[in-house]
Every structure is written in structure tokens, then in C-alpha cells.
Amino acid sequence: MSKFKKSFHIKGRDFIRAGEASINVQNLLKSMDFDPRLIRRVAICGYESEMNVVMHGGDGSLSLEVDTDRLILEISDDGPGIEDIDLAMQAGYSTANDDHREMGFGAGMGLPNMKKNSDQIHIESNRDQGTVVRMIFFLPEGGKTD
């Protein structure tokens, strides 16, 4: 059983609030005194995935689970799903539109960057059935570091 779990709602197409959940996660981890480098990795993964939900996925949620040896970040949405996960993992592949690009996103860097910054990433997605992205960040032996 995890030590701590908290979930945040993500509203699809709401570009003003996009990223709030990740900032909340970042602040939570700061208050728990985790290593700043680990916090940055988790926040970047959360933010990238949150932007994906807002841009493509419809409504969704982001949850943070703190366990004795790992942090787990899970992002799920009820959007159109990822048709070809292998293709989506390739740097530069994007289905974003011009509106997304005007905001500085949609360059096809999100999923590769999430893979780079997490220790494990699992993606479950089917067409028209939404997407669940689960990322694991292992804690150094003995738990968190300062």
C-alpha cells in the first residue's frame, strides 16, 4: 500500500490552466523534501503529459503516488487514444495543430522527453478508448535524498 496518493483533474482544451496539476505536484514534492533533481524530472514528465491531455486527450487526471521506494505518476484521459504508440515515441512525430505550436508545444518531443526523464514508462492506449501513461521514478536506497 502506498504511503501517499493525490489526484488532480485535468480539463481538456483549457490552455490557461494547463500545467496547474504539475505545478501542484512539484510543490507537494518540495514540501516533502525530495531531491530537487528528482522533483524536476517528475514535474517535467507531469507537465509534458498534462499538455498532451489538454491538447489531444479531452478530460483527464494526473495522480501522484509516493511509495517507500518509488514515485508513481499516472496520467489518464478519455480522449481519442494513440493510434501507433511506437510512432508517437519517435522524436519529432506529432499530430499537433498550429494552435498548439503557437503556444510552443506540439513539436513531437513530449513522449520521448517523458521516457528520458522517468525510470520506467508504460503507455496503454486504444483508439477511442483514451490513454493511460504510468511513469515510475525509483528512489535511492533508503528512500528520499536531500
Partner: peptide
């Protein structure tokens, strides 16, 4: 606002 959130993260 995304510049600020990106910079913070």
C-alpha cells in the same frame, strides 16, 4: 502563462 509554467517546471 505556459512560458511561466515551463520555466518553473
Amino acid at each position: 502563462v505556459q512560458v511561466i509554467r515551463t520555466a518553473s517546471v
